[in-house]
Every structure is written in structure tokens, then in C-alpha cells.
């Protein structure tokens, strides 16, 4: 056609910059996310105290310049423990979400593409999982499988899988007979390839929103399990346990033991909740100009 002077199109990097600049909330979320990642990677190296070192002489001190978040009942530095715990909590949630993302995507994509009895069976199975109170189900799984970090990950993954499967199923189903899927078949792609390389990637934008919300839930879930004594065991620093232990001291006035880990937990969940829309805009090529 005749449009000779072509406006320049954006590359991936320019698009990323655009998404971050257009929405200050996304920029904030990515900034907080970068901070959390920094804590997870370098936390143990930069904290002022050993998170496990006890110091009976300095037990239950309120926040001060020396101990920003105060110290606990056996004199451990709360700030160091909160920062060091980031790695464990993020690891549990990322692993759990990755697992449910993969399993949910496969189940949902297969059900959405081929349909039929497979679809019906899978849907009823997912309905069954969702019929349980999810946290109670996770408790049951951890209690039954044993009290380890891996089992927390599995339990969190199992309760999150139905959400991914449902979402992917719907997204795949509406594109099953789309023109580009038909065209891909004419190009010599088998059904499996059409599904994996043409239809599934188009389901990614809404999945990203789900992933980031889920990361938040997964952290809460892991902390919740630890809070009630399942999963991570003391003295390992972990936000849930710290809140649980700190809760005993609130009555006697030592509020910092529970408040700071709780605040950090909230911060992490908040970050992931904010992250969703930005992530979706980044993986959606249609948002580019």
C-alpha cells in the first residue's frame, strides 16, 4: 500500500519503559519487587547480625538504632531475621506458583483444546478440589505428607492449580478454532504444536495477572501454615513463624516482634498484587504501538 513514511515501531525494551512510565503504580510495584529480590539474593550477606545468633543479655529490646526492629525473647535481631526470611518465603511461593502454573496450564490446555470426556472428567476433578476450604486442604496435605518445606510447596501448588486450569481452559477454548490456529495446521503443525506454540502463548496475558496475585496468596498460605505450626520449623527465620511467636508477646507490650514480620509479609503480598497489571501489559504484544 502507499504508506511510505513508516512510524517507528517499539522494541521490547522501549515497550517496557513505556509500560513503567505510563503507570506510576506499576513502576512502584516493580521497584518494590526489585527490593524484595535484592533481599532474597543478598539478604544473608548484608544483614548486620546473624539471624540465628542468640544474645540473652539483649532479649526483648524495643526498636533502636542498634536493632531497627528490636530483638526477640532470646536476643536475636528481628530486622536481620525478617530480611533473611525473604529468600525462604519467596522461594516457597515462586516454586509453588511455578508448579501450579505448569500443571494447571497443561491440564487446562488439554481440556480446552480437545474437550469431550477429558474435559468433563477434569472439570469435575477441579470442582472437587475447589469444594474444600483451600487452607484446610493445604493443612491436611502437609499434615499427611509430613512437615517439610517441599510439602508446603506441593500443598500450595495443589490448591492453586484449579485456578490456572480454569483460566487456561477458557482461553484455549475460545481460540481453538481461530483462523490462526487453522492456518498453523496448514503450515504443517500437529495439534500438539498448534496448542503449545500458537494457542497457549496467547493465553499468557491474563495468566500473568493470575500469577502475580497467586504469588501473594502463596506467601500468605506458606506463612499461614507456619503460623499454625505446620511446615517451616523454628529457629529458621520465616515470616509466619515470627508472627506466631511474636503474637505471644503482644499482650505484654513487645509489639515489634509480631508487627514487623507482619508488615513485611503485607508488603510482599501488596507488591505482587500491584505487579499483575504491569506484567500483563508487558507480555501482551497488542499493547505495543
Amino acid at each position: 500500500m502507499t504508506d511510505a513514511p513508516l512510524p517507528r515501531t517499539q522494541g521490547t525494551w522501549a515497550h517496557l519503559v513505556y509500560v513503567l512510565r505510563a503507570n506510576p503504580v506499576t513502576l512502584l510495584a516493580f521497584g518494590m519487587f526489585a527490593f524484595l529480590i535484592f533481599c532474597a539474593v543478598f539478604g544473608p550477606a548484608v544483614v548486620p547480625y546473624d539471624p540465628l545468633a542468640t544474645n540473652a543479655a539483649k532479649s526483648l529490646q524495643p526498636p533502636s538504632w542498634e536493632h531497627w526492629f528490636g530483638t526477640d525473647q532470646i536476643g536475636r535481631d528481628v530486622f536481620s531475621r525478617v530480611i533473611v526470611a525473604t529468600r525462604l518465603d519467596l522461594m516457597i511461593s515462586v516454586a509453588a506458583v511455578a508448579l501450579s502454573f505448569v500443571v494447571g496450564s497443561i491440564l487446562g490446555a488439554v481440556a480446552g483444546y480437545w474437550g469431550g470426556w477429558l474435559d468433563s472428567v477434569l472439570n469435575r476433578f477441579l470442582d472437587t478440589i475447589m469444594a474444600f476450604p483451600l487452607f484446610v486442604l493445604a493443612m491436611g496435605i502437609v499434615a499427611a505428607l509430613g512437615n517439610t518445606i517441599e510439602n508446603i510447596i506441593y500443598a500450595t501448588a495443589i490448591i492453586n492449580t484449579p485456578f490456572y486450569a480454569r483460566l487456561v481452559r477458557a482461553e484455549v477454548n475460545i481460540r481453538r478454532n481461530a483462523g490462526f490456529a487453522q492456518a498453523a495446521k496448514l503450515c504443517g503443525n500437529s495439534d500438539l504444536r498448534v496448542l503449545a506454540f500458537h494457542i497457549f502463548p496467547n493465553a499468557l496475558p491474563p495468566m500473568m495477572v493470575q500469577v502475580s496475585l497467586n504469588l501473594g496468596w502463596a506467601i500468605l498460605n506458606a506463612a499461614g501454615l507456619s503460623f499454625i505450626g505446620l511446615g517451616v520449623r523454628p529457629p529458621t527465620p520465616e515470616w509466619g513463624i515470627m508472627v506466631a511467636e511474636g503474637a505471644n508477646f503482644i499482650v505484654s507490650g513487645e509489639w515489634w516482634l509480631a508487627v514487623f514480620p507482619g508488615l513485611w509479609l503485607m508488603l510482599a503480598v501488596f507488591t505482587f498484587n500491584l505487579l499483575g497489571d504491569g506484567l500483563r501489559d508487558i507480555v501482551d504484544p497488542r499493547k505495543r504501538t
Binding site: 481461530a178 483462523g179 490462526f180 487453522q182 492456518a183 498453523a184 496448514l186 500458537h198 502463548p201 496467547n202 504484544p285 497488542r286
Partner: peptide, 15 residues
Amino acid sequence: QMVFQDATDSLNPRH
């Protein structure tokens, strides 16, 4: 081979 009715629908939005 085939040329599809709706050019928009027949191209993968991510390609």
C-alpha cells in the same frame, strides 16, 4: 493451501 476470510483472525497476534 488456503487464504482465510478474516486476515486479522488468521494471523497469530503474537507473531
